[in-house]
């Protein structure tokens, strides 16, 4: 059910990006989509009652030198967290570029309304 909520948030972002007329609101819509996907990825790795996947000295098995399997079975999946961190970094770059283009466009046209920014046709 929670996954469906993620998808709902994604669709809200998509609606905002495609329907709104203001450039800044379009950017906000795209970011909502981004965060919906991040939330989805984080929830993929969730385990009810799990522990954080940080390995300390106690979690090592003294005999084999590996991490104890009981710890592995109790901890949440760390891979989606790495994915989300990377996705956040990428979205930061994309967001800053979008915002700077919005500002530049505002300087040129004097408006954020995309219905008035229409020099390209066809």
């Amino acid at each position: 059910m929670l996954y469906a909520m993620c998808f709902f948030l994604f669709v809200i972002g998509l609606y905002c990006a495609l329907v709104k007329k203001n450039m800044v609101k379009i950017v906000i819509g795209i970011m909502i989509m981004e965060y919906a996907v991040d939330l989805f990825l984080i929830m993929l790795g969730y385990r009810a009652g799990g522990v954080a996947p940080i390995v300390g000295k106690d979690e090592f098995d003294a005999v084999s030198g590996m991490v104890k399997s009981s710890f592995i079975n109790a901890s949440v999946d760390p891979l989606p967290q790495a994915l989300v961190l990377t996705a956040i970094v990428i979205s930061l770059g994309s967001l800053s570029l979008m915002i700077s283009i919005c500002i530049r466009t505002y300087e040129k046209y004097g408006t954020f309304d995309i219905t008035e920014i229409r020099r390209l046709k066809g």
Binding site: L14, A17, M33, L41, S94, M98, Y109, L120
Partner: peptide, 28 residues
């Protein structure tokens, strides 16, 4: 950084970002 170029870039960027989000959701 002229009028047409900024407009085209914004259009491309919005649709490209939406496409990227679709792909990331699919990968998830």
């Amino acid at each position: 950084c002229e009028h047409e170029e900024l407009e085209a870039s914004f259009k491309y960027m919005v649709l490209g970002s939406v496409a990227s989000m679709f792909i990331l959701f699919g990968i998830g």
